[in-house]
Every structure is written in C-alpha cells, then in structure tokens.
Simulated scan of single mutants.
Amino acid sequence: MLQSLLCLPPLESLVMVECAYNRGDIDPTFLRGHLAGNRCGKARDVLARVERGSDSLLETLARVLFRDAGIATETQVWLDGIGTVDFLLEGFLIVELDGVAFHLESRQFKKDRRRDNAAAVRGLPVLRFFYDDVVHAPEAMLAQVREVLNRGSSRWPQPEQPGFGPYRRSLKP
C-alpha cells in the first residue's frame, strides 16, 4: 500500500488503500506513520481522503467526483422507510450506483425499484448510474446531478427545514 501511495496516480492509490482499509487489511494510521518527510506530501493527501464505508471502487470514484465538484456528499446513509442509500447529495438527492451483475438480478432489481418508489413517496429524487457513467462519462453524470440539485432544492424537503420530520435520516441500524 505504501508503494501505491508513493508511485501511483492519486485516484488509483486511493481506491487501493480504501479497499484494503474497508476489508480490515490495513490501518491508515499505520500508513501515515511511514509517510513522514517532505517527499510524502501527496501520499498523505491521498491518505486523508480514505474513508470507511464504500462498498466498491465505483463508490469511491463517485464520492471523490462529487466532493471535488463541491457537492455536499454523504455516503451509505440510512433513510427511515427507504433503507441504506449509496449517496445522499445536498441532503435530498439519492444517488445509487448499480453494478449490472448484481443490480439486474431479478430480486435485487425489484428491491431497488421498491426503494426508489419509497423515496419518491417521501419526496426524494433518485438518480441511478452505472460503471460506464462514473468511469467513462463523469461530466455527463455530474451534469445530471447538478440539474436535479439546481431545480430540486426548492421542490423537495431539506433536512434543515421543518417538515422533513419522520423521514429524517438516521444512523445505519
């Protein structure tokens, strides 16, 4: 992991380190302890972006993309009546990343659509993206996200506003 932090492009090393961290194979504190000195600044910057919770490299890439675009991004958020969502952007936009193999399996596909419906009933929009969107067309994906965020903030309840009530997000059970 140290070599990846020192030698690979930042995003690639972030994905590798975060995957190992989320599996419990490495602790960022251990890595940080081996990155002293002036020549390790970029590696420490990457390490500072490592988070617990991403279920896939795709989620790591999307989280970095959203945050670098200045979008308030929460990951793996439990929403009462809906369940855990991949992302909650600006407190009201749910973004889900779907792997074709898993999310197009009949049972999971139905479960995802029921969750989308529950979100819509509560006034929360949902956008779903695939690997190709995140990796090969990130600007198009960001354009769609920004469009909903720009139009949506006055349409859907915000966590800070009265009335968000029973749908307020809570910690994962």
Rank of each mutant, 00 (worst) to 15 (best):
Q3D: 14
S4M: 04
L6P: 00
P9Q: 08
P10H: 10
S13Y: 02
S13G: 05
S13K: 07
V15F: 03
N22S: 02
N22F: 04
D25W: 11
D27R: 15
D27T: 09
F30Q: 12
G33W: 08
G33I: 03
A36H: 14
N38C: 11
G41R: 15
G41S: 15
G41N: 12
G41E: 13
A43C: 09
L47W: 01
L47R: 03
S56I: 03
L57M: 15
A62E: 10
R63Q: 05
V64A: 09
V64W: 05
A72R: 15
Q76T: 05
G83D: 04
G91I: 06
I94L: 12
G99M: 11
E105D: 14
S106M: 13
R107A: 15
F109H: 14
K110R: 12
K111W: 11
K111N: 14
K111T: 10
R115L: 10
N117A: 13
A118F: 10
A119D: 02
V121R: 04
P125Q: 07
V126M: 09
R128C: 04
F130S: 05
Y131S: 07
D133A: 06
A137N: 09
E139R: 06
E139P: 02
E139F: 02
A140W: 00
L142C: 03
A143Y: 03
Q144C: 06
V145P: 03
V145C: 06
R146V: 05
R146S: 02
V148Y: 01
L149K: 00
N150E: 12
N150L: 11
N150F: 05
G152D: 01
Q158I: 02
P162N: 00
P162V: 07
G165F: 02
L171E: 09
